[in-house]
């Protein structure tokens, strides 16, 4: 167990270095975009005079490296600065939206992960039957369609034609948890459809891969029913790749949902990032990207820890 703690600490340390590199990359990527914050804020209404004055106000006339170090010296102490546009602290503008994004991701994950794994086991069990083919075709269709298209289809059938669920998922204060689940069901369902296929097929592949191993044959020979063979013997050894795919998909639920947010008018962090990039609001872009990068780092770490914990050979190394 001491090794595991050491590994976690080492990975967290490396994660911090990764974040630093990411922040440098983001900073220079934003700098490379055509036009600066002042020009983007003033847009079509810009004149040379006003752009110059605004640049001075925002401190954009200082050298690039100085501005980066200035931001970094705050970020080390978790002070991510203020938005260049609104002047609000970045944490205040990202906080509530990130909470919304996390909620939607959790909602979708709670539905998608069990369904995907359960379906994966089932299709492995009934492999090459009609059930297997239908499940594959359906999930592959849903992963291949763009999210906004799935969203529109769901809106058409579940909101416009039947009014089972609201077409827009705008949140208001004082909603009960039940109302919240009802209102955000369609975006959550869209995400479920998008991520299920990947996890299901990985579960299926990992299990089928093991089914030709001698110990499975042994289990079968002693007369164990096929379902039990898979759940008791194959699945425990298949966890490692499944956990990795689940972690990747969870990261996707947090970082890749901009289109779903737009279609369902859901106030998540994706739209904030898009707006911030288009206005070159560097502190907000930086904070959003660091959150996304940290999400990937932490989920990958969690996947590795999960892999070790589910594998006795790694848990008790000689």
């Amino acid at each position: 167990m001491g090794d595991l703690l050491g590994l976690v600490l080492k990975r967290l340390g490396l994660g911090l270095v990764t974040l630093l590199v990411v922040s440098i990359l983001i900073f220079f990527a934003v700098e490379l975009l055509p036009g600066d914050t002042a020009q983007q804020i003033l847009g079509q209404g810009a004149t040379e005079e006003t752009v110059r004055a605004l640049r001075e106000q925002l401190g954009l006339d200082r050298p690039m490296v100085v501005r980066y170090l200035d931001w970094l010296s705050g970020a080390i102490f978790f002070d991510f600065g203020v938005s260049a546009i609104s002047g609000d602290p970045v944490t205040a503008s990202i906080g509530p939206r990130f909470a919304n994004t996390l909620f939607l991701a959790c909602y979708a994950a709670v539905i998608a992960v069990p369904i995907a794994i359960f379906l994966g086991v089932l299709v492995a069990l009934f492999r090459n039957t009609v059930f297997d083919r239908v499940a594959n075709v359906l999930t592959l269709t849903s992963i291949s369609s763009p999210e906004f298209f799935l969203g529109y289809i769901l809106i058409l059938y579940l909101a416009v034609k039947t009014s089972l669920f609201p077409a827009i998922s705008s949140l208001s204060e004082g909603m009960t948890f039940g109302e919240l689940l009802h209102r955000t069901f369609l975006p959550a369902l869209t995400l479920v459809l998008v991520v299920t296929a990947h996890m299901m097929r990985m579960t299926r592949a990992a299990i089928i891969n093991l089914l030709s191993s001698p110990y499975i044959e042994m289990a079968r020979l002693k007369g164990m029913p096929p379902f039990k063979v898979i759940v008791r013997h194959a699945l425990p050894n298949a966890w490692a790749p499944i956990i990795n795919v689940v972690a990747l998909n969870l990261a996707y639920l947090i970082t890749g949902v901009v289109l779903v947010e737009v279609v369902f008018v859901y106030p998540g962090v994706g739209q904030l990032l898009v707006d911030a990039v288009s206005k070159r609001d560097f502190p907000v872009v930086q904070a959003c990207c660091l959150i996304f990068a940290a999400t990937f780092i932490l989920l990958n770490l969690a996947a590795d820890v999960g892999t070790i914990l589910t594998n006795p050979r790694l848990r008790h190394p000689k």
Partner: peptide
């Protein structure tokens, strides 16, 4: 006031009576 940037979503919200 509700920000709905997607033209389809605006139209749907109007049709379903959400706005």
């Amino acid at each position: 006031m509700l920000v709905i940037n997607d033209p389809n979503a605006r139209q749907t919200a109007l049709v379903t009576g959400d706005v």
